[in-house]
Write a protein that binds this DNA or RNA. Structure first.
Lengths: 228, 228
DNA sequence: ATCTGGTTTTGACATCGATCAAATCTGCAT
DNA sequence: ATGCAGATTTGATCGATGTCAAAACCAGAT
């Protein structure tokens, strides 16, 4: 089930080095960060942490996907964020509190880099470039989260889906084809929709020249999608 | 209309010193931060900046309120965040980009502390405690924004209103009375609701012993409100 | 006390998206 | 190829919330 070690595959290492957290670090800081890191591999649907637990680590997704979610009183789950390779989560607790604020669970077989919270906290106080890396990471994360709020409040389901497709389409206006990197289930959670609503949004977009077959999405006219 | 100076009222100064941004700073760092700050006073409904403009300053609300919002294609506005005294906004652009991502406008007569973006960027690189203050501020801000997403996706209008009331009620379970610090209009935006929906949420809560008269909200039984 | 402009509430309605159940599809294992 | 389990789509329905219009309310100015 759970497999913890210190070996990184080449691909995982490449992902790790491109996170805002590590990408700008110099030799020495990098070594110190890495010495407080361990690698965790989990199969699908495993809990990483639960709301209310003591926050003694934050994580970076190396491969696979992680769902951050909360429960309401009735036990209904709502995804707050879907983390893809390169994303960091729970790093806001470095200075923001001592307990996890939501549940985290794998949404596929997943490999994580695990950073000891207290160790990084100390490091950030000592090394300027680590502090800067923390700031960069938090800034980006905050911006995408604010975008998420705006997206939820401003756009309908088909618009959100169109937006998502557009973010992974070539910039020019012609036809394009993309492949979802995960199940539609996850995409629904990412966009704050029930899976059925996502499905219906796709079928609405058919009128705009979007074809969906399995994970492959074909867009007849990228420009037309922008007008939705 | 717009009135910029370097004088701080005692109350504004007290608010400023309690922001995560400044509260932990030592004498020297504090002086340097303050030397890159100016005070701006604006009347109601004045634009502070607009989406897409060059981000050359971030702000802290000293008194009054600020609405951050975006427009959709049809021109409908959606509030992303309502900033109260003590809140900082646009500070995520310190390291996250060069253009404002949303509109900011006063929602009352408002006094702001304006910080020069580039100057603080430089300062944060030099002074450890300033970097730390930035991190603390971003962390808190990120957490409340994630809470906002969760709240939007998980709770109905009456539940959100109940939550809001509870955050400003004494902790014990008895009766309580609070006074809204602003128009219901703003509260609606804060909770991601149309004003009419807020009004209806209040009337739903009447069944749970909540009485609203103008800005005064009386809660019969705080504990009962938690069960909504 | 009264007027007045802006805010809030209420009503009627349309729309969106959630939910539940059933049918279909897909990919994987045999 | 075949079968299965899980994922996705579709259908039917319901509830929640946005929208528009009108009435009621409120607060500050006269």
């Amino acid at each position: 089930m759970m497999n913890s070690n210190f070996k990184l595959s080449n691909r995982d290492r490449a992902v790790l080095m491109k996170t805002p957290f590590l990408t700008s670090l110099s030799g020495n800081s990098l070594v110190r960060m890495m010495s407080n890191m361990s690698v965790v591999s989990l199969t699908n649907r495993k809990s990483i942490f639960r709301e209310g637990e003591n926050a003694d680590a934050f994580y970076c997704v190396l491969s696979g996907y992680v769902r951050l979610y909360q429960l309401n009183r009735d036990g209904r789950e709502a995804d707050i964020r879907i983390c893809s390779p390169g994303d960091t989560f729970a790093e806001c607790l470095l200075y923001g509190g001592t307990k996890y604020r939501y549940h985290a669970q794998t949404a596929e077989a997943t490999t994580l880099a695990r950073f000891d919270m207290q160790a990084v906290r100390d490091l950030a106080e000592q090394e300027r470039d680590i502090a800067k890396a923390v700031i960069t990471s938090l800034s980006k994360h905050l911006m995408t989260t604010m975008d998420c709020v705006a997206n939820d409040r401003l756009h309908t389901a088909p618009q959100r889906v169109a937006n998502y497709i557009l973010t992974r389409c070539p910039v020019d206006g012609g036809p394009a084809s993309i492949r979802l990197p995960f199940q539609k289930n996850l995409l629904a959670g990412m966009l704050g929709l029930a899976p059925e609503a996502l499905s219906r949004a796709f079928s609405t977009l058919r009128r705009t020249g979007v074809t969906v077959r399995g994970r492959v999405i074909q867009v007849g006219d990228v420009q037309a999608l922008r007008e939705i």
